[in-house]
Simulated assay, not measured.
Amino acid sequence: MNSISLDLLVFMKSKDFQNLVLSKYQSGDGLTKLFRDFNGLIGLRTIERWCKNIRDTGSINLSSPPGCHRIIRTKGVIQKVKNRLEHRKPVSSRKAARELGISRTSARRILKNDLGLRAYKIQREPLLTNEHKEKRMRFANWIRTNFRKENTMKILFSDEMFDIDGIYNSQNDRIWAVNRLAADTNGGIRQKRKFPQKVMVWLAVCSKGVSPLVIFKDGTVDHDRYIKEVLPVALKFGHDAFGADWAFQQDGAKSHIHAKLQEWCEKHFPCFIDKDHWPPSSPDLNPLDYCIWDELAHQVNWDAVTSKTTLINEVKRAVRKVSLDVVFESCSSWTTRLYRLPEVKGNYLR
C-alpha cells in the first residue's frame, strides 16, 4: 500500500488509522512517508508516538490518554478550592486554577456552579473610629436642622485628588461569595487611613456644574498656597453660579483647618461649613469622592498618558466631558445619603 485515497481517509475511524499505521510501519514505511500518506489528517507527533508504542510493545496501546492526568470536578478538587478560599480569601479564578493545577474553566465552574459563589471587587474605605461615627451622625443632624433641601443644592463641594497618575487596578482582585454582604465579611473591604500621595488637582462641583480645575504641578500645598490659588477660584465660581446665597464645603485636610484659612473662608464666603462641623474621614459624604472623581477618571484616555504633561492635558480634557446630569444627580442625592447615617450608626456609606 503505497498511497491512500483522501476520500477513503475521511471516512476512517481512529482505530482504522491505528491499524493502518501499524500495518504500514511493520512493512517498513518510515515516519515521514506515513505522515505524507495520511495527507496531514494525523499529526507527525501522533505518528511518532504510535510508532514508539509499536517498537516498545508491538502494538499501538492507547488504553490511557497521553499527557498529564486529566483532573475533573471531583469532590476532592471542589474541597481543595473551598479550603483555598477559607485560608486566603482574595483570589482570582486564574490564580486559583494555577495554584491547584486545574484549568481556569474548571476553577470558574467549581466557584460558580459547585460552590454557588460570585466574584466581587475589593472595596476600600477609610478606617472609622467610634468617635468618627458619632461626629458623622451629629453632622447629619446639624444639616437636617440648619439646611432646607433647596439650601443643600447651593453647596459648593470641593476636594483635592490624590494619586491621579493612575487608577487602582482591582480587576483581578476578587472575593468569591454568595452576595455582597458575604464578600465584605470575608475580606471584600480594605480600609485605608489616608491618601498616600501629594495633592495634584483641585476641583469643586455643585448642582449648577463643575468649577475650573486647579492643577498643582509641583511642590506642596500649604494653607498660604491654598488661599492664593484655590479659594479665589471657588469664590468666583460660587458667586457666578448662585450670587450671594450659597455655601462652601471642604474636608479636614491639614492645610484646610489652619486658623488663617478658616478665617479667610469665614470672611469671604456667604456660608461656610467649617472644620468643627465637617466630620473626619468622610469621603462618602462628598459628591466628588463618591461619584465625580470616578466619572472624571473614566473620561481620561489612559492610553494617551505617557508623561506628567500628557496626564495633565488629559485631565483638563476629561473634566470638560463630565456629565452635568451626573453632577446634578450626585448633589441632589447628597441629603439622602446623609440621612442614612443614623440608620447605619455612622458607618461608611456604600
Rank of each mutant, 00 (worst) to 15 (best):
K236H: 09
A96S: 06
L44C: 04
I215Y: 14
G67F: 02
H69Q: 10
N169R: 14
I257F: 05
G187T: 06
T309W: 09
N130Y: 11
P212R: 12
G166F: 09
I312P: 00
L349T: 03
Q250Y: 03
V326H: 04
F147P: 00
D245Q: 08
V81S: 05
D165K: 12
N53P: 00
V178W: 01
K133T: 00
D251C: 07
D289R: 01
L261G: 04
V300L: 09
K345R: 11
V315W: 08
H298P: 00
M200K: 13
A96M: 10
E150S: 05
C68W: 05
L8Y: 12
R104D: 09
P287Q: 02
S307I: 03
L9W: 09
P196V: 11
K80A: 12
F195I: 01
K236S: 14
L213I: 08
L128T: 02
Q299Y: 05
K267Y: 04
K345S: 13
K33I: 05
R55K: 15
K192W: 07
N146H: 14
P283R: 04
N347R: 04
D222K: 11
H258F: 10
E229S: 07
K275V: 06
V326K: 12
T336K: 11
H256S: 03
D303E: 15
I4Y: 06
H268W: 10
M161K: 15
S307T: 05
K228W: 11
K112S: 13
M1H: 12
G188D: 09
Q171E: 14
F35R: 11
E134F: 06
K154M: 07
T306V: 07
N301W: 08
N2M: 06
V230K: 03
D294A: 07
E263R: 07
N83D: 15
I71D: 02
S103A: 04
K80L: 14
K260T: 08
F237K: 07
I71Q: 11
R45S: 14
R350G: 02
L338E: 04
P280N: 08
W302T: 01
W334Y: 02
K345F: 07
L117C: 09
T74N: 10
K254W: 02
K198M: 14
K194G: 07
I4T: 02
N313S: 12
R49L: 02
P283M: 07
E343N: 06
D218K: 10
P283G: 06
H277M: 03
